[in-house]
Design a protein around this nucleic acid. Sequence first.
RNA 1: GCCGAGAUAGCUCAGUGGUAGAGCGCGGCCCUGAAAAGGCCGGCGUGGGGGGUCCGAUUCCCUCUCUCGGCA
Length: 306
Amino acid sequence: MLKKKIVFLLGPTGIGKSAVAISLAKKINAQIISCDSMQVYRKMDILTWKVTSGQRKKVKHHLLGMIDPEQEYNVAKYRKAALSICDKLFSKGKIPLFVGGTGLYYSIIVDGLFSAVPQDKLIRAKLEKQLKLKGNKYLYRRLAKVDSAAAAKIHSNDARRIIRALEVYLKTGMRISQLQKNRAGLGKEYEVKIFGLNSKRQSLYDAIDQRVDKMFNLGLINEVKRLVKHKLSRTAKCAIGIRELKGYFAGQYSLAEGKRLMQRASRHYAKRQLTWFRKDKRIQWVSINKSQSPTQVALKLWKKLS
RNA sequence: GCCGAGAUAGCUCAGUGGUAGAGCGCGGCCCUGAAAAGGCCGGCGUGGGGGGUCCGAUUCCCUCUCUCGGCA
């Protein structure tokens, strides 16, 4: 029996995944599933540098712009949606091609998510309050008492992870460090191919800076102005550019400074993405440079697939 | 040409008679329901060149070079 094939195309922001993906998808009869925590949002097209409608006509894209920016989104929602699309594609004989740079979303698809313990608003609110009142060391000590293994893994300043670990314990009585061992990934019935795109650090950074410039030329300011009129969810407002432009709108600094901050944040983000992907030895890296067209890169990947 | 100020980490600068720090940048790392988020770690740098004083100078003195401001 032929294994079902799933392909991933990963890499830092600005490396040029999208165009390569479209070209590759056409060659292998695939549809694209976005693997990006911010492109799921509507009204953030320039800001998150989504593929254009023209590009979407060439190859069908999934999980792009289907959530209102007032809504929260998270890994669990993503996983559910993505896997269901995968099934649909398989039934139509199409290959799912995951494309994106959100490392956590990628790993949650490939390696699975531990048994469902959704967030609990009440418990969270209590913990957040304690955090404010007594500080992160206090919460950390609390965690260490109930789940020393988790505490050993989490830094005492990493309030977010401390709260999550405590939340899981308070809600279920079980330790997150135990639960995390139990995850089911894609398993053996699939043939999984994972590609990563990368280039010289400096050319990546140059590309990122230029892309931010282009965003401004395309009307980023107006898009974000319209966007911030909504009450953005705490996840949506994390998109790079919102915080930076809000400071400009508020008159705290110049437009040039806002742009500079955005470029810097994007570079830092790319660096963190690379750290995440680098440790994953399943990724087959393909290094690219400006002289190669997306089609040429896609051809390279295609050869590695067969 | 004269007067004044300065020359210290990639950048902006602080400080000290006992061989140097900060912020930012940059690099490395962590990551399971906020992940474009959040967290952690990393600074030997001919202290502009040369000379002098001193047990010892980046720190004081002299001189040269350069930069900036003012006057001509």
